[in-house]
Amino acid sequence: MPTGHHDICQRFDVECLPPELDQKVGIALNSLGKVPLHAVRLPPENGTCGWYIYGGEYSDDADFYQPLHVAHLGEYCPSILPYLALPPGWRVLLAPSYEDVWFDGELLKHG
């Protein structure tokens, strides 16, 4: 895992839960050039670490997200790496000179 994730978790006073490098994220590769960058962490399941990442506006298209191993995330979205150890229920919003990180309990509800 990249350096810096312990600093982020300490800053928000949460337990560090970094994903395993062989787990997968859901990432909207075609949207990554758009601003802002959104990331949400749901509870891990079926080999995923729970992170879903996209740029710009969300789409509910079935093929919006593609699976990507955490080990390759730095090649596509290095700015999110320091935040990956935030536990499920956290959201990250990044734009040039802007950062917003918050807990959203709704992400932990299944329904």
Rank of each mutant, 00 (worst) to 15 (best):
H72I: 00
C49S: 15
E45D: 10
D22I: 07
P67G: 05
W102C: 02
L42D: 08
Q10Y: 00
D61M: 04
W102E: 03
Q66S: 15
D61P: 01
F64N: 01
M1Q: 05
W51D: 01
Y65I: 06
A85R: 08
Y76W: 15
H72S: 11
D61A: 14
P43G: 10
A95E: 13
Y65T: 01
L86G: 09
P78A: 05
V25Y: 02
F103D: 03
L32F: 02
L73M: 13
I8C: 02
W51T: 04
S31L: 04
G56N: 05
S31C: 04
Y58Q: 09
V40W: 05
S97R: 14
R91F: 00
G4Q: 05
H110R: 15
L29G: 01
L81F: 04
Q10R: 14
R91K: 15
V25H: 02
D22S: 14
G111A: 11
F64P: 03
I53Y: 01
K34V: 01
L42K: 15
L107Q: 12
E20Y: 06
L84G: 10
I80K: 07
P67Y: 11
L93K: 09
H110G: 11
Y58V: 02
S31M: 04
K109V: 15
L93I: 12
L86W: 12
Y98M: 13
G4R: 08
F103P: 01
C16E: 14
D13M: 08
P18T: 05
K109H: 14
Q66A: 15
G89S: 09
L107F: 12
L32T: 02
L29P: 01
G55W: 01
D61R: 13
L32Q: 04
Y52R: 11
H69N: 14
Y58P: 00
W90N: 05
L81W: 04
P96M: 01
C77T: 03
K109Q: 15
T48Q: 10
H69G: 00
P18G: 03
A85G: 15
D104K: 04
Q66C: 10
G56L: 06
